[in-house]
């Protein structure tokens, strides 16, 4: 089962700050959707993702997953970060099964399957510090998947990897989430990553952080980065981003942006 998420008018002001970091964010995410959240560094993407994960409480509004308000973290919605954050005193397998250990449901066969899925079957007993960055991120992926989450939240998870490792991991995650019918929200500042992975891209603008528009990406998986249609979508998204984020004056042009959003989605389709 997957999640449908509704974000109901979230506004967030960090302690000690006068201006809100996020303002009036409202959106719905359908079960099994793959969402990319793009925006400049510092516009509040991570903050929003932390709220989806229940790791941060919004000062106003709330997040609901299948109707239930998210108030604390849960293994049902799992977050991955730019750093793999593996525990160096555990081997690969122990890292991957940590969520199961916490929930008292160790399942060695499931871990074997996951190790196979992320291509680390022969590294299960290795020291995590002996793995490459891409392999470490694969362990983190296996760890996130082990607790069978409905929702995978990724915060720029591949931005520290080299281009080849990055694109193969993007494809793998897109494939796994399709196969397991997971809902995916990936935060990125990489247009290519958004086009490679998402069905729908949300564009975020800063000061205060809010969503200024969106674009559907209607391409089959796995996506061929060399195809003409990929380049078209990429260019369309780039143009949308430029027009929405660069020209965006907070609030006054909100209506404008929404209107444009409709046009560009049509143009892209």
């Amino acid at each position: 089962m997957s999640a449908n998420i509704s974000i109901d008018y979230i506004t967030h002001t960090f302690k000690g700050q006068s201006e809100p970091t996020l303002k009036d964010i409202a959106l719905r995410i359908e079960p099994g959707e793959k969402i990319a959240l793009i925006g400049r560094s510092g516009c509040g993407k991570s903050t929003l993702l932390h709220m989806l994960a229940g790791l941060l409480k919004p000062s106003e509004g709330c997040v609901r997953i299948r109707g239930h308000q998210v108030t604390k973290p849960s293994a049902k919605w799992n977050m991955m970060f730019q750093k793999p954050s593996l525990y160096p005193w555990m081997n690969v397998r122990q890292n991957a099964e940590l969520g199961l250990v916490f929930n008292g449901q160790k399942d060695p066969q499931k871990i074997n399957r996951l190790m196979d899925m992320v291509g680390l079957k022969d590294k299960a007993d290795a020291h995590v510090q002996s793995l490459s960055g891409g392999q470490q991120q694969r362990v983190a992926l296996a760890r996130s998947l082990a607790t069978s989450p409905d929702l995978l939240l990724l915060d720029e998870p591949f931005s520290a990897l080299d281009a080849f490792t990055r694109s193969s991991l993007q494809d793998e995650v897109a494939e796994i989430t399709s196969k397991e019918q997971l809902t995916l929200v990936i935060v990125t500042h990489d247009i290519d990553e958004a086009v490679a992975m998402a069905d729908r891209v949300l564009i975020m603008s800063a000061n205060p952080g809010h969503i200024v528009g969106e674009m559907k990406i209607d391409l089959p998986y796995p996506r061929n980065r060399a195809s003409a249609s990929f380049s078209q979508q990429r260019e369309a998204l780039m143009n949308r981003f430029e027009s929405l984020v660069n020209d965006h004056v907070p609030h006054s042009s909100e209506k404008n942006a929404d209107a444009e959003s409709g046009n560009a989605t049509q143009a892209a389709a």
């Binding site: 849960s74 525990y87 916490f102």
Partner: peptide, 24 residues
């Protein structure tokens, strides 16, 4: 991040102490 990840994976206070903090 070690705390954040463990929390997200469902660690309670005691598990945080003896699986994360003490080995760390």
């Amino acid at each position: 991040l070690w705390f954040k990840v463990a929390k997200n994976l469902g660690a309670d206070g005691f598990q945080m102490l003896y699986r994360i903090i003490m080995p760390a």
